[in-house]
Design a protein around this nucleic acid. Structure first.
Lengths: 224, 224
DNA sequence: ACTAAAATTTAGATTAGTCTAAAAAATATT
DNA sequence: AATATTTTTTAGACTAATCTAAATTTTAGT
């Protein structure tokens, strides 16, 4: 079970996993190439290799999907990535737009004990700093039950739980607007013509475009 | 100044650095090969590459030495290695014989902020769990001022500060004998014929061979 | 259904790191 | 000083991961 994978192989599995969440069928060669910023021909080569190792199912021209074992490995890497993100933010004072590239490196460190102990040390966190769920030691992932801010109505109140787009620029924008995980937000108004919203964050009023409201996971609050 | 080195290149620099501490002249190809468990021919190839990058000085058949820049890089890696070791022992409950192989991986993670913050988080430790000094952010290393246990006389008392040999088997032996960093030890007797010692550790009496007493750094205590 | 366009794969090269076996240089031995 | 031994380097080959350019297959458009 414990074939030793290179960082590159691990990155391919991770990419295929996250692409599988978006499309229901097999993942295309091109989409993997795009995600990993490499060429389609390189993807073909690697996919063949992973197929021989029985980590993906692959038939020429038909795209790829992860096998059970491939998925297990991908989830383990994602687990490590997100645990490290929690560590960096909680203990090393990283901001949520800085953690990703460091976690990309830390996720490849191989040590079962390290992951276990880190998890315990962080007190078994369930979500990373972007609000994404952290798979447990058995690979179970709590799925996003949240809704998008954009779907709320005027007068609704909600709490920010996560971001869909976690690009640096988006995260920086949120930071400067005072929006963090756990922040309470009330919808004051919605513009029909461009679907922008006026929201209340703390004591401030803020206008947010649909581009933004469609990328914020929130939990609706009872407004009794 | 900031050429991006591969993990392999970093490991070569580290190996050359630590070998330089033992011999005063240039380091031999063979000794590097032995340390890295690789072949001499591979070492020659890599040394040429590092030489082109101006990280080592190299003349055919004459051995290698680090340039100022090469040494700086080596020291930075060692700093990271030892900081991670402290983290693993202090916070993740690793024993001192378990930390090395994980730290070997963590030391290659590239992020200036990570190292800085980790250092601060650990409260600027000066020594790793084996008693080895941790280079500061400027690359300065406090040198071992300790002496060997084997050099003490009957009746002397000392505190254990570090180990010279940090092989797993040695560390495990120390663990099982109740000898840790900071442990107080008194020399009860010395056997002339094999240079073994009877020492007092806590309430226990223990016989240790010269092989052991020559590998323990200690600080002599005033026995007023 | 046929053709044009897009996606994918193959073929052949390239780079990093490694190896074995042979050649060359340095060191040790008599 | 001449030879034997050891060390080091070179030459040539291999694997992993990548690329470009050409060939093939699928999909989309009419």
């Amino acid at each position: 079970m414990n074939l030793d994978l290179s960082q590159t192989e691990e990155n391919y599995l991770k990419a295929i996993f996250s692409l599988s969440l978006v499309v229901s069928k097999a993942v295309s060669t091109n989409s993997i190439a795009q995600k990993l910023e490499t060429k389609a021909s390189s993807v073909t080569d690697m996919v063949k290799k992973l197929s021989e190792k029985k980590l993906v199912d692959y038939k020429k021209y038909q795209g790829v999907s992860l096998t059970v074992e491939g998925k297990e490995i991908a989830v383990r890497i994602i687990r490590k990535h997100r645990l490290w993100e929690v560590f960096l933010v909680k203990h090393l004072d990283f901001s949520w737009d800085e953690v990703h590239e460091v976690a990309e490196q830390l996720e490849h460190v191989k040590s079962v004990k390290l992951t276990q102990q880190l998890d315990a040390y962080l007190e078994y966190p369930t979500h990373d700093p972007h609000g994404d769920p952290i798979p447990d030691a058995d690979g179970n992932i709590a799925h996003h039950t949240e809704i998008m801010l954009s779907s709320l109505q005027i007068g609704d109140t909600c709490m920010v739980l996560g971001v869909k787009d976690s690009s640096k620029s988006f995260l920086k924008y949120l930071d400067s607007s005072g929006i963090k995980l756990g922040t309470d937000v009330r919808v004051l108004n919605k513009e029909d013509f461009d679907n922008s919203m006026i929201i209340e964050v703390g004591t401030k009023e803020l206008s947010v475009s649909q581009q933004i409201s469609k990328n914020l996971f929130v939990k609706k609050q009872q407004n009794d």
